[in-house]
Design a binder for these strands. Structure first.
Length: 212
DNA sequence: CGGATTTGACCGGCGC
DNA sequence: GCGCCGGTCAAATCCG
């Protein structure tokens, strides 16, 4: 059962930790890089589903109770062994119906299965990744995730266009309908955030998807 | 039986 | 220096 009745996505932003990556201290198993250098971005999804399907396969590798939230935070890693993308999933303490998903890194492969019910997650993630590619959106770091009222969302997706729920049938025009340019410009102060243009759209839509 | 999930322990960063 | 906290590991467990 997919509770996709009220899917609402807000891309919060992305950024790289500005902290210098320290030399890997002599730990027991080289504890990876403590400070990730990968681009990160987070978006909020108003959904009852904890783990949104975004077209990629994720393996859960941890779960922790976090200080600011009564809900645990889950840690996922892309199951593709060549892909180091990670994501964190947690519920907003302010609004339990809102799931905050934080992606870290970029997929080096396409989706294994195109999402059906939760296209917003994929769309938002691809938008943000694409935005990173195009240097359209630059955040120093993530804004306060736990303060949805003061955040500065880049995109807002109040309602999932039915076209987005048609996997493999999304063509350029359909996606353009859902490119949220007007939403983004109305939410953000003029000029601060460039609208999602066709170039961006072009980048976020895999070639295989375009001929619909 | 293989892959995914759970869960407690461990480690490092950071603030005090 | 110490304690808190977030992030990751890895063994155990679950599930198809």
């Amino acid at each position: 059962m997919r509770a996709n009745s009220d899917l609402h996505v807000c891309v919060l932003g992305y950024g790289c930790r500005s902290k210098p990556a320290p030399a890997p201290a002599p730990g027991k198993t080289m504890k990876k890089q403590k400070r990730a250098r990968h681009p990160r971005f987070a978006f909020m999804t108003k959904t009852e589903i904890d783990h949104l399907e975004d077209g990629y396969r994720w393996r859960k590798y941890g779960q922790k109770a976090v200080k600011n939230s009564p809900f645990p935070r889950s840690y996922y890693r892309c199951t593709n062994n060549k892909c180091t993308v990670k994501k964190r999933v947690e519920r907003s303490s302010d609004d339990p119906s809102v799931v905050i998903t934080t992606y870290e890194g970029q997929h080096c492969h396409h989706t294994v299965t195109f999402p059906r019910g939760a296209g917003a997650a994929t769309l938002a993630s691809q938008m943000a990744f694409s935005a990173h590619h195009h240097h359209h959106l630059v955040y120093n770091d993530l804004p306060a995730l736990h303060s949805p009222t003061t955040q500065n969302p880049l995109f807002s997706v109040p309602a999932m266009s039915s076209s987005l729920l048609q996997p493999l049938h999304c063509n350029r025009q359909e996606l353009q309908v859902a490119s949220y340019t007007t939403q983004a410009s109305s939410i953000s102060s003029p000029g601060s955030v460039p609208a999602v243009d066709k170039g961006l759209l072009d980048d976020m839509v895999p070639p295989a998807m375009r001929h619909g």
